[in-house]
Amino acid sequence: MTLQMWIFLGYFAVVFGIGWYSLRATRGETDYWIAGGDLGWFAGGATMAATHTSAGTFVGTIGVMYTVGWSFGWVLLSIPLSYWFMVAVLAPRFTRQKELTVPAFIERRYYGKGIRGLSAAIILVATVVYIQAQIVAGGLIANTVFGVPTTVGMVGFTAILLVYTVVGGMMAVVYTDAFQLVVMGLGAVFAVPLALRQVDGLGGLLTLVESAQPHVFTFQAVPLTLLLTMGLSFFLGGIATPEKLIRLYAMRDMPTIRRGVLFAVVMILALNLLVFLLALAAIVLFPALPTGDLAMPMIATAVLPATLGSIMLAAITAAMMSTVDSLLIVAGSALSVDIWQNLIDPDVSPGGRMWIDRLGIFVVGTVPVLLLLSGVGEGELVQFIVLLFTALMAAAFLFPVLGGVLWRRATREGAASAMVGGLVATFIWEAYGSPDVEPVLSGFLVSGALFVTVSLLTPPPPDTALEPYFD
């Protein structure tokens, strides 16, 4: 056994320990799906930050910055603004009536079981694809650390994730996320000074980057329209995604949400800025990588000493697991609560419900790995699909959720057409539109236009649907 393996085994042991503790603390569906709805700002904020930070931050983001330069970093500003908007405008009304799932909110506000099923189906498809891509990253890490084939690594990671998520539900996700956030922080905090030491400190780094790649510190490397539309789509896309909304239900009250989001934003900004600095170091240390995605693995193996390198790999794993477990909760609840218990078997007994809850997560978690093992969705295509599906989910939910709590006249038909229209428009732009503009923007435009027009053309919603959210 190498030291690297011990570090990973210790890390998994802590995760399982938290899962076991959560099983004992979970007493009913409220605990299982929204961690009792009584989280404090620290646990709530930590799980938000950990969910937000995926393997994409540690591999994809650093890769983009390595390729296009620091101007990409400015897109980061859209993230705190998006969270701020969510807390100030959406959260106060959205949390007046707590639900267990986001589709349950859709049913109450839009008075229909059909539209609840539609939103659950969108969540299911989008998250399964997203989980797939993250599991591929997990397979690669397992290959590096334990020398096992990537397929074994993928199955292994899925098994670990499923054990604690199925057993402990949202409680396990929240508390493991807090631990994963610490691991990510440690990885970034240790890596940056060591990388900087190799390039004569921060001043030396800036001088070296400027002389080697003068375009890095300009706004000319990327078309300005692309930077602005990226920022705008991060902003709009961040306001109403289901895995974030469910965390608003999980936190105790509005003051807690405001503090939790402050904590999350500070952690997300700090982690990203540290990763950006690593990207600059990679530009100097490894100037000719074939793809930017190799920047982080190169730093972990060639710059850091073995122990810290494995902490960095553990940090990437932590980023991956803390995002996948949250998506498992969202997708599992869509399957077992919103589709099975709501549409297929409404008379299921309370005892049977908890059983179906766990089965839902198990099914949603095993499908991606089965698809991967049968050869569906491997390679480059996955990254492309992930971006597309995050865009689809954002385009589908922004207007129905935000408009639902701000605009009394929003109707069921308006919301349904906004969901479907947003999806279709994003797909069409992705296939035929200009690559200088983010495809999700067309999704938002079409979704918003349909939401307003169709709502005005259909009969107004009944008072019972509005009463929980409006005075």
């Binding site: 500003l77 503090r259 800025l273």
Partner: peptide, 30 residues
Amino acid sequence: MTDFVFWGLFLACGIVVVAYVVWMWWEERR
């Protein structure tokens, strides 16, 4: 230009966080 593009991002992040804290304080005093 380097100073503005590089340090400006850190400054901007700081400003957003401070502005959020001020908003939070104001919101809870109301």
